[in-house]
């Protein structure tokens, strides 16, 4: 166990948490608008493959991230049309989106198996990165880590302090009342779903371009589902999303480090630990009661009713 370096561990925790943080934050926006999109995993894996493919072909990871966000948003529009215009069940459609995304990604990804990622430069922040202990932990990451943290603040500000956020929350809490007040429920939800899709796409691309970094079929391995669980864990609050994502990132990194350090616990049991912890956390949260779920979450909105 001596080979585990706590500074490196915490630094890699931030890297491991970033994909889940991005996806969970996006899904929270979607759910705040009253929509339950279970397709996060499908949008993430699509973002992962599109980001990787564009990144490799253009040689620019930044361009990869932009394309991944666009791809995630585009895929989420399929969900939006089926659930918001054609009024289908959100649970079933979200599941369909995940199955579709997994198929689509392995189709696109075929030629990229075993290809090297273009690399993504770290941002060594001058002076700050030289601080002992804190420097390597906090100030030597790539721009996406910082962007994800900025996005937490942005989402918090938009939801809590602006008119746009107020309308979004109104649509999510009570879509009939929001409609009666003249807000365009379906339009607001389309925007929220696209935002969630883009952020899931970014999260996926972070896995394939930075975290791993290569394309492996099914590589998000349930991260999208964990993101969904974190939204519940966080009681639909942005800062708690950050806490939840870093908690799960920490467990993932710790178990990977234990595996590498040759722990006596078999690999399989270490690998299943993040999922078991997710279940445990969900149970603890539900004992306390699911506070904060938007009132219209998952319900079909039809103006005639």
């Amino acid at each position: 166990m001596d080979s585990i370096n706590p500074i490196l561990l915490i630094a890699s925790l931030m890297v491991a948490s970033t994909p889940i943080l991005l996806a969970a934050l996006g899904e929270m926006v979607v759910e705040k608008a009253g929509v339950l999109n279970l397709g996060v995993e499908g949008m993430m894996i699509t973002g992962a493959v599109v980001g990787f493919a564009i990144g490799v072909n253009s040689g620019s990871s930044a361009l990869g991230f932009v394309s991944a966000a666009l791809a995630g948003a585009a895929l989420s529009m399929v969900f939006a049309i089926i659930t918001q215009v054609l009024l289908a069940n959100q649970v079933a459609t979200g599941l369909g989106l995940t199955l579709f995304g997994l198929g689509l990604s392995s189709l696109i990804g075929k030629p990229y198996v075993g290809v090297k990622a273009p690399g993504f430069a770290k941002l060594d922040i001058p002076f700050l990165s030289d601080i002992p202990v804190l420097g390597p932990i906090l100030f030597r990451h790539d721009p996406m880590v910082y962007l994800s943290l900025i996005l937490v603040a942005v989402v918090w500000y938009l939801l809590a302090r602006t008119r746009v956020g107020l309308i979004l929350r109104a649509v999510g809490e009570n879509h009939a009342a929001a409609h009666a007040l003249g807000y365009k429920v379906v339009r607001v939800r389309f925007a929220a779903i696209a935002t969630g899709g883009a952020m899931a796409g970014l999260g996926g691309a972070y896995v394939s371009l930075v975290r791993v970094p290569q394309w492996v079929e099914g590589m998000t391995a349930g991260a999208g589902w964990i993101a969904l669980a974190i939204v519940v864990f966080a009681s639909w609050r942005p800062w708690r999303i950050l806490l939840g994502a870093y908690l799960f990132g920490g467990i993932t990194v710790l178990q990977l480090n234990l595996q590498a350090a040759g722990s006596s616990i078999p690999v399989e049991y270490l690998s299943m630990s993040p999922y078991l912890v997710t279940i445990l956390v969900l149970v603890i949260i539900s004992v306390r009661g699911n506070h904060g779920a938007p009132g219209s979450l998952g319900r079909v909105f039809h103006a005639s009713q």
Binding site: I82, L95, S106
Partner: peptide
Amino acid sequence: PAAAIQLFQGMLLFFLLAMDV
């Protein structure tokens, strides 16, 4: 590719849910 058929199955579910309207 094998994935093409997986995609095909996913599309089937989409069309079904969409037509339910």
